[in-house]
Design a protein around this nucleic acid. Structure first.
Lengths: 216, 216
DNA sequence: CTTCTTTCTTGATTTAAATCAATTTTATTA
DNA sequence: TAATAAAATTGATTTAAATCAAGAAAGAAG
């Protein structure tokens, strides 16, 4: 069990990390800390009554939803410092996603009510949040465009390019199991595997387990 | 040219309409009013330097992006009272979408800088905005799920059901040209036409030009 | 109303990716 | 480290939807 500092945990969230410390400190009293979830357990699920946001203090998790047939669609992944469910801080919509720990995980969390009270007193916090949401909407729209105009191989490359930019290197480390990454890209694991092989044959990339080198 | 009241225009925006009038009045001085765009003209486009949000005072428009081949992907539609580009009020990302008037259109708009200044003084406004963003993110995630787990016909039905709920009737009026609707659903106009025909044959729906009746 | 353009529909064919099935590889646990 | 389970790969086949092509219907403009 890692050492835990409430302020350090909250400060990891993209949502909060650019705030001046004075603001961040105000978040500590309204958040729950050091919740532990062993690998494989569900951190959040529909109807669990846990409306609000969580911050990954340490660990990895995946966010997915189930359709009627029980098939998973990966909506994203979480790693240390990521936050999830921010929208539930602002709308009374209840959760429809699952969040499952993919390693042993510690989180801190915040309820809607407490947060709403706080934000009325701290407009800078609101601004920071709005910014974050804007980013996500742009990403969502980008994914829509990619699905409409790119085939599987192009989407994989676009994803790798994004990751490369994000990680600041042309050697990228995949943050997801390949089958989950396939789901995120809207393809099957089989297609993913085949297309990756083609990309290697075309000398566009090199693959070493979970590390991919992009040749430009 | 319709009569124009700045407050009335801003009050149409989902973003603002639940605000107390005292707050809404504060928006008037920071917004530009009564910009006119004839049918077919571009209200916004990439690199136009017009960062910020717009509110549809009167008219209809479509939001789309172009991929490298010049192919449109419809990201959504706007009608009287809708707002667009809210994310550009909060992030310095510049616009990557086109907004084209599909009828004669009047809009009012607001720049990022003016808005940011205002919002620091009005936290309730921030809360309302965050709520709206949350909704949109939920819709975006829902679309992702649908694309992964539904075929073309199911997506059409799901869309019609949504529209039916939104319009409060099982007789829905399509707000888009069919080819644009197809693009929104991630299919071709040909497939859309065929699937619609199948749905009629299966007695799931009845089609009358742009009006579709859903049989439950 | 007539012409011209755009959108919509229908048919024939192709194709990208899904599915089904069987290994191989990698990871987990005893 | 052996046994077991899960993930990844590869091959064969099917299939949903795209593309290509041509005509019909609807809208816009003269």
């Amino acid at each position: 069990m890692p050492k835990h500092s409430p302020l350090a945990c909250l400060s990891k969230a993209a949502l909060f990390k650019d705030l001046p410390e004075s603001l961040r400190k105000k978040l500590v009293p309204i958040s729950a800390h050091q919740e532990y979830f062993p690998k494989g357990s569900l951190i959040r699920q529909p109807m669990d009554g846990k409306d609000g946001m969580l911050v990954m203090d340490k660990g990895n998790a995946k966010v997915y939803s189930l359709n009627e047939d029980g098939k998973e669609t990966i909506l994203g992944t979480l790693t240390t410092g990521d936050s999830e469910g921010q929208e539930h801080l602002f709308s009374s919509n209840s959760r429809e996603n699952f969040v499952q720990a993919t390693t042993d995980t510690w989180v801190c969390s915040m309820t809607r009510r407490d947060f709403q009270n706080l934000i009325r007193q701290t407009p800078d916090l609101a601004l920071s949040l709005l910014n974050d949401f804007g980013q996500k909407l742009v990403t969502a729209e980008q994914n829509t465009v990619r699905r409409n105009s790119m085939d599987a191989k192009q989407r994989i490359l676009a994803y790798l390019d994004d990751l490369s930019k994000k990680q600041g290197s042309n050697q990228v480390k995949l943050e997801l199991k390949k089958k989950d990454l396939a789901s995120y890209l809207g393809i099957t694991p089989e297609t993913f595997s085949r297309k990756l092989k083609e990309l290697v044959k075309e000398n566009k990339i090199e693959v070493n387990k979970k590390v991919i080198t992009i040749n430009e």
